[in-house]
Design a protein around this nucleic acid. Structure first.
Lengths: 358, 358
DNA sequence: TTGTAAGCGTTATCAA
DNA sequence: TTGATAACGCTTACAA
């Protein structure tokens, strides 16, 4: 092999020309055989395959990408947070995206939505340079409005687990508003009256909507919203720990945490303050991450289907790339209450975790 | 734009030809200007840049990849484990690899070393199809011998955190043998005599070497190795929990766990058996993952620089790709004992976690 | 059933 | 300082 080009620079790879020469046919024939779709004689096909195998020929990705105008790459965008990959939400999302993409024959590369991403308009460049066929963003905030710059056509884009207000950009997310409501209603149902909320950053859709659900549920139940009982912090256990300490001064008998990690922080603060969960104070989380079932007490929470969400978003993205979808997708997956120990009251039997058993 | 090609199929992207036409120069000139390296008149340069900006021209990645014979992509290979991304070892490794690659201007795509990977020889194909410039494998096992098929030249490859026995493949890892010894010596130093070991899968280099260190240290201290005190299981908390229960029947006064996650399982088993840590039994982990410092009691462990390891491995890989390194790299990063509460005895002051403060 | 040749969008060599 | 042009490796009309 490597004798095909007249006098070009050889780089050690067998090319389609090499195969054509070996078999004694044209490159068109080889290409046709390899793409199966056609009417080349069995005899020729056989010979081509033989040569391909003997010389372990593989078509150059760049060459096909160039002519087909398609890369097979998808950019998975994550926010610039230290140790993003350690966070269950992102880890689960990545798993979901990855599984779906592989299934559909796409590669996934990870890009970080940091300062450089915005300043250099990488979100545009990745498309313009034809590095990727589509983009999937997990963990976006309402501040990412620059994304609206993306042209409507030819730039397949989707959010997983979030969305942008008043935007034509597609998304798949979970029903955060209902989730907030479910949590509050449940807390009410176990006899709680003074329900606090430790919310995440309101720039993040989930925090914003969960808070909204919290307020709505209170309102519907005829309970006046007390601003002193609702505080916003970052999405960490430590942040929630500190925020919870502030709120505890107002003696709530229940806390709805912005997510499960934060619920852990809340429970820690409660423990330190000498309040028993769930005897003195009920705690409800949201997400139902793997560790929720392992907490002491086991966390009652609202299940947010992170993996499924990401998986679905990726599938939708592929459909957009392949032209099977042309309009904006906006899917909202249902959430569900998972009753364990941290709120007291009745307990469902059986269900322990959506993650158990694998 | 889009008026450059005579009659080709237009795909909506501005090409170098478009720019050349607009400015009234040749494509060679445009290319030269864009690659800065040359002597094009300021006037021409200015005009070219103007046209480039006005038309938001970006060179096609596929086209340059084709002619430059270089992709700028690196494959990050992870084992096929359910929820790999949720495991601290992988999460931290990915972070390290990612940070290093970005810094060097490479993209990273994630590939899974599953059945298909091996059967279809994807590890070879990714190179042959010129999809990636190099590969970095985290979490390999001794069974991955098929990788030895990779040709010595032109297929930059490196392991992070593991290695292959009797192989020419490069690696960066931590000093697991010393780590095992350190753990045992420390346990001995706090007065323990009967030290058990809950090991990970011996097909994995770290488990194999940590066990080796454990045995060596016992031997050196004149303590006979007791097979009943050493059991191997998978790398999970649950696995270690069950394994620990078996070992507890032999009444050890200390346990060296194969990693921190497993140490958590061991402590759980101990707690359930009514044994106090560290009063009755000392527990030492290894890795020093973020949660180690948060465990109750805080885990004494051997720090394994997972992030640094991956970061260094990625940098070495890039050097291999760029021809700055031609021989096998085999780096072994030192480990260090981090004394907290779970072994009892003296405590260092100050150090709490390698992860604190960010 | 197969071959010819144009075209994908760059870079780089060699002249001018 | 610039321009023609070959080359990178493949796909795909269009002919034969």
């Amino acid at each position: 092999m490597n004798n095909g080009a007249k006098n070009g620079v050889r780089n050690g790879h067998t090319t389609i020309k090499d195969i054509a020469n070996i078999v004694g046919v044209s490159t068109a024939t080889v290409s046709l055989v390899l793409s199966k779709n056609s009417r080349i004689s069995d005899e020729t096909s056989r010979k081509v395959f033989e040569a391909v195998n003997n010389n372990s020929y593989r078509p150059s990705a760049a060459a096909r990408s160039l002519v087909l105008n398609k890369t097979g790459n998808i950019s998975l965008i994550v926010p610039q947070l230290s140790r993003v990959f350690l966070q269950p939400f992102f880890a689960l999302s990545i798993n979901g995206v990855y599984d779906a993409c592989i299934e559909k024959g796409y590669r996934v590369q990870i890009d970080v939505a940091g300062e450089e991403f915005v300043r250099t308009r990488k979100y545009l460049r990745l498309f313009q340079e034809r590095v990727v066929d589509g983009m999937l963003y997990i963990g976006s905030t309402f501040s990412d409005t620059y994304l609206n710059e993306l042209p409507d056509e030819g730039y397949p884009f989707i959010f997983s687990g979030s969305y942008l207000k008043e935007s034509k950009l597609s998304f798949v997310t979970g029903d955060n508003v209902s989730g907030g409501r479910m949590a509050v209603k449940h807390l009410l149902s176990v006899g709680r009256k003074k329900i606090a909320h430790i919310a995440g950053d309101f720039k993040v859709a989930s925090a914003f909507d969960r808070f909204k659900g919290y307020k709505e549920a209170l309102e519907e139940s005829g309970i006046e919203f007390n601003p002193a009982l609702a505080v916003s912090c970052d999405f960490t256990e430590e942040g929630a720990f500190i925020a919870a300490q502030k709120v505890l001064a107002h003696n709530p008998d229940a806390v709805f945490a912005g997510n499960d990690i934060m619920a852990a922080g809340v429970m820690k603060a409660l423990k330190e303050a000498g309040r028993k969960v769930p005897e003195d104070v009920s705690v409800c989380g949201m997400d139902d991450i793997p560790s929720a079932a392992l907490m002491k007490p086991a966390l009652t929470t609202v299940r947010y289907r992170i993996y499924e969400m990401a998986h679905l978003a990726a599938k939708k993205l592929v459909d957009m790339i392949e032209g099977k979808i042309t309009k904006k997708v906006g899917e909202v997956l249902p959430v569900e209450l998972v009753i364990r120990e941290s709120c007291g009251g009745k307990r469902e039997s059986g269900i322990t975790s959506q993650w158990s058993g694998s």
